[in-house]
Write a protein that binds this DNA or RNA. Sequence first.
DNA 1: AAACTATTTGGTTATTTTGCCAACTAAGCA
DNA 2: TGCTTAGTTGGCAAAATAACCAAATAGTTT
Lengths: 107, 107
Amino acid sequence: MNEKTKKRYEARAHIIKALAHPTRLFIIDELAKRERCVCELRDMIGADVSTVSRHLTVLREAGVVEDEKRGLQVWYRLKVPCILNFFGCVEDVLKANARQMAAAIRR
Amino acid sequence: MNEKTKKRYEARAHIIKALAHPTRLFIIDELAKRERCVCELRDMIGADVSTVSRHLTVLREAGVVEDEKRGLQVWYRLKVPCILNFFGCVEDVLKANARQMAAAIRR
DNA sequence: AAACTATTTGGTTATTTTGCCAACTAAGCA
DNA sequence: TGCTTAGTTGGCAAAATAACCAAATAGTTT
């Protein structure tokens, strides 16, 4: 594998890593509905604001969400809705896994 | 966020985490073309076999690939082709990021 | 059965990720 | 100007990941 190819896979992995956390998946789902300020997300998630803020930084830094400060609040929105399609595929994997698990028990 | 919802996001994150590594993304791309034995992947990747084997375990365990032993070799194939659609979306994010980066420099 | 090949697993170490608290910054309000 | 609110950042400890070598396992060949 040459250097350029390697770089490309690293860049992709960086973005996918940004999605790979339960809290960040939740945030994405919420932002898919409408923009939210940090405080709303903090209330829904129930973690320290600093923790939520760091999750948002990971997503922003990956280019998945964008933010806008209005007054005291910072509002976040989803920048890349095509991610949502992918979640359907993830659900398919989960369903297939569940089926396989059930079949294994029956056997 | 209730317990059940939390579990669901954890299950999703588990699958996405399995994808979130450059080597594993490479493996998925290769398996999208055709099935491969561990030794072929080892040669392409150039890491220790044990390392490659562990990456494959992560993917199998997540339900993304499946394996079949034939003789001495173990052959892996992609179980969930819809993942590939997602990579298109990841590329879009990368392109958008590059554009934004370029615009920021111009400014 | 012994030697050989392909792969997995155990164990170790280095690195990265996560979450919290405390301290700081920025904006609005008294 | 000083107080309050919203959010970010520094620092730290705990947990999760990743890579390698060595040893074990499973199937082939002689």
